[in-house]
């Protein structure tokens, strides 16, 4: 079990490149985010911002989904970081049945790939119920 997580993280390195530092930390800490008394560490906050810029327009506010794209609060209950990374980088298509679902490939978008683990940390915190809706408050730098 432990090994498969490590493998997954290793695979993520090869895909994501620069994002490995935080991903590795996420593995050792078990959770990819830090939330203390409702306040979040910087990666989660950065993830919130980048989500707002690149993902919200389809997946809705606070990762809750919309008429256009599924809820990521729900999806991250069963998606691994690797699966998440693969989907964001390569995109995804589910065509037909009158509701074509197409997610673009963000692999070439520096505002997404450079913050991939941050976006994951934010969404995972939302999915786990560690943070609520809206703009999260950051922990003081020392506490991070």
């Amino acid at each position: 079990m432990r090994r498969s997580v490590a493998l997954a993280v290793f695979a993520a390195f090869t895909i994501v490149g620069g994002a490995f530092v935080i991903a590795a930390r996420a593995d050792t800490a078990k959770k990819p985010y830090v939330v203390i008394n409702g306040k979040v560490n910087h990666p989660v906050f950065e993830g919130y911002l980048r989500y707002g810029e690149n993902c919200m327009r389809c997946h809705g506010e606070d990762g809750l989904g919309s008429s256009y794209a599924p809820s990521l609060v729900d999806a991250l209950k069963h998606l691994s970081y690797l699966q998440f990374a693969q989907t964001v980088i390569n995109g995804k298509k589910n065509l037909g049945n009158g509701m074509e679902l197409v997610m673009p490939a963000f692999g070439l978008n520096p505002d997404v790939v450079n913050y991939l683990s941050d976006i994951y940390a934010y969404l995972k915190a939302r999915s786990d119920g560690a943070i609520g809706r809206g703009r999260p408050h950051q922990l003081p730098k020392k506490a991070q």
Binding site: Y48, L49, Y51, G52, E53, N54, M56, R57, E61, P104, F106, L108, N109, P110, D111, V112, G134, R135
Partner: peptide, 23 residues
């Protein structure tokens, strides 16, 4: 709304927004 602008990079065919908002 609350509106929070931040710096973005232009990549052709990618979102070029540079803000997040809550309503």
């Amino acid at each position: 709304m609350d509106y929070e602008p931040f710096k973005v990079t232009y990549t052709a065919g990618q979102p070029y927004v540079g803000a997040t908002l809550s309503m």
